[in-house]
């Protein structure tokens, strides 16, 4: 007992620092060195881990490898914030508008607010909220914290305001009403025309949202089915039936009302610079007027083209904030 207690102290004094692990090992083997101590500790040993197993486990890990490096394609911490949107890779590199209205709205908003950012092509699975877009702040943007949390789209206005952008929304009693036109009437028509209109789904939505994700026919079929079912469920929430004529005629009336609201002003609500409202309008008008989308069923596009000032509004934003 006495020896046993002393021995580790001795050993550590004599051969102190070859390696610390051997020191530990000695302690464990040195505690029950004599048969006497073994007998007194019999009861306690019965409940403790048997010595051979313990020594074996103490050997593990035998060797600790350094952590693996991130894959080559992993995003490097960037100096400027990155906005993750639905986009094609080459379009994202050149900062072209996203093909998803929800993403394009916030992309346009950041451009208008003058927040310098770059784009990354992504999909919903990448987002912490499950929905694109989200913004990953730059590594050195604020007090050099590399693990800054991603910012969901709902907090982007606050983020822009904190970074010195002018983000005042017009205070107008009509604001909410005309916004509801966009969020309901035009959005519903958009959902129908993109996902449920078979011509457009195969020609427009399929290459953008389905075949870009996977080459496996099983995955593709499942994704396209999911997309269409989600669009259908969204439309059936508000009515017991998808009334196509009603959807299109309501969207047409919505464009009419928005066109009257804009009048001859450059921006909505008579502001001297574009706001988030302009960005949300642009998100739909740009995609409907963009020839690159190759719409096959153009009912909604025609309804929009009839409103000259909305077409010009889109041109104005495109030239000024997306470089043409």
């Amino acid at each position: 007992m006495f020896n046993g207690n002393l021995s580790p102290v001795n050993s550590s004094f004599i051969a102190m620092p070859p390696t610390i692990p051997t020191d530990k090992r000695e302690e464990e083997t040195a505690v029950p060195p004599t048969s006497f101590s073994r007998q007194t500790n019999k009861v306690r040993d019965f409940f403790s881990i048997p010595a051979p197993i313990k020594t074996l486990f103490d050997l593990v890990p035998v060797l600790v490898y350094p952590p693996n490096g991130l894959p080559q394609r992993a995003p490097k911490p960037a100096r400027i914030p990155t906005l993750y949107v639905f986009s094609k890779k080459e379009d994202a590199a050149t900062g072209k508008p996203s093909f998803n209205p929800g993403c394009l709205k916030w992309q346009a908003f950041l451009n208008i607010a003058g927040i310098n950012h770059r784009l990354a092509a992504s999909n919903n699975h990448a987002s912490p909220t499950g929905v694109l877009p989200f913004l990953l702040p730059g590594a050195s943007s604020s007090n050099a914290s590399p693990d800054a949390l991603p910012i969901p789209s709902s907090k982007l206005v606050k983020y822009a305001a904190e970074h010195g952008a002018h983000v005042k929304e017009p205070l107008n009693m009509r604001y909410e009403a005309y916004k509801s036109l966009l969020d309901h009437r035009i959005r519903h028509a958009w959902l129908y025309t993109l996902y449920l209109e078979p011509l457009n789904f195969n020609a427009v939505a399929y290459p953008l949202y389905v075949s870009s994700i996977s080459t496996s026919p099983f995955v593709r079929a499942s994704i396209s089915h999911q997309l269409r079912a989600a669009a259908e469920a969204e439309l059936l929430k508000n009515s017991s039936i998808i009334d196509i004529d009603d959807l299109y005629s309501e969207a047409d009336k919505a464009f009419e009302a928005l066109s009257i609201l804009l009048g001859d002003d450059p921006w909505f609500f008579g502001c001297d610079r574009p706001t988030l409202f302009d960005a949300s309008i642009f998100a739909y008008t740009h995609l409907l007027l963009d020839d690159g989308m190759e719409w096959k069923e153009k009912k909604l596009c025609r309804a929009l083209r009839r409103r000259e000032n909305l077409v010009q509004h889109r041109e104005r934003l495109l030239v000024r904030y997306f470089g043409g």
């Binding site: 009509r174 909410e176 009403a177 005309y178 509801s180 036109l181 969020d183 309901h184 009437r185 309501e250 009336k253 919505a254 009419e256 009302a257 928005l258 009257i260 609201l261």
Partner: peptide
């Protein structure tokens, strides 16, 4: 009139959705 017609469309959507 034009502006009132637009308001009628917009607020109809608003009343229904909200």
């Amino acid at each position: 009139p034009e502006q009132e017609g637009a308001d009628c469309i917009a607020f109809s959507s608003f009343v229904e959705s909200h």
